[in-house]
Amino acid sequence: MNVVQAVGRSTLGLLRTAGSVAIFAGRGVSATFSAPWFGGQFLRQTVAIGYLSLPVVGLTAVFTGAALALNIYTGGGRFNAEQIMPQIVALGITRELGPVLAALMLAGRVSAAIAAEIGAMRATEQIDALQTLSTDPFRYLVAPRLLAAVLTLPLLTAVADIIGISGGFLVATSTLNFSGPLYVQNTWNFLTSWDITSGLIKASVFGFIVALMGAYHGYNASGGARGVGRATTHAVVSAAILIFAADYILTSLFSGK
């Protein structure tokens, strides 16, 4: 009986949280598409989320592309198929690793920062102050972050795609004796526009998840400094899990399987 109760309680808790996140997301999206808009906040968030994430996303992409090239070269060698390495690297980066790794980097950097900032604002009554100053916190805090993340993560992913493929190129030409022009030509001829577009669509969805988790956990933070710390952890962990889950669902939808 106790086990049944525990399972029931956990299920209800999960459903309550899912409902709460869905309502929060709905309010955030609604605030994004209705006036008043806070352009200054949006620009500030675009710089913080997009521009300032470039180094970490770029470094992650270059090392991942290089490592991927080595692994595929080694694995392909077992079937005498080393020469398809450029194509597989390009496909892996654009469809999967570019958007997922960029999103995971943002989950660590941006989700945490959003949760900490909004959580600290909650703890110091700044969110209450916004309301007393006739300003909807969803419009001022949540909407600009959601919009900035949804728009900038695809751009970051495009950069990650280029740098990741370049990482594979560097390893291939410097240590695996591939011809540079041939590598580029093989990659270019193989990739379709959908390979790139599907990755960018994924990135947009991941951007929404990253900002949503940061804002949701920060907005609902309670218990002072400890609560802010807890919100930050929850934001990063939940964003990472949801990114992987969304990745599978989107890949399944895109492949029709």
Binding site: A120, M121, T124, E125, Q126, D128, A129, Q131, T132, L133, S134
Partner: peptide
């Protein structure tokens, strides 16, 4: 809320 003003305990100024 336009007709209200409030001074918070910790001032609650936006950092």
């Amino acid at each position: 809320n336009a007709q209200f003003g409030m001074l918070f305990q910790g001032a609650a100024l936006f950092d």
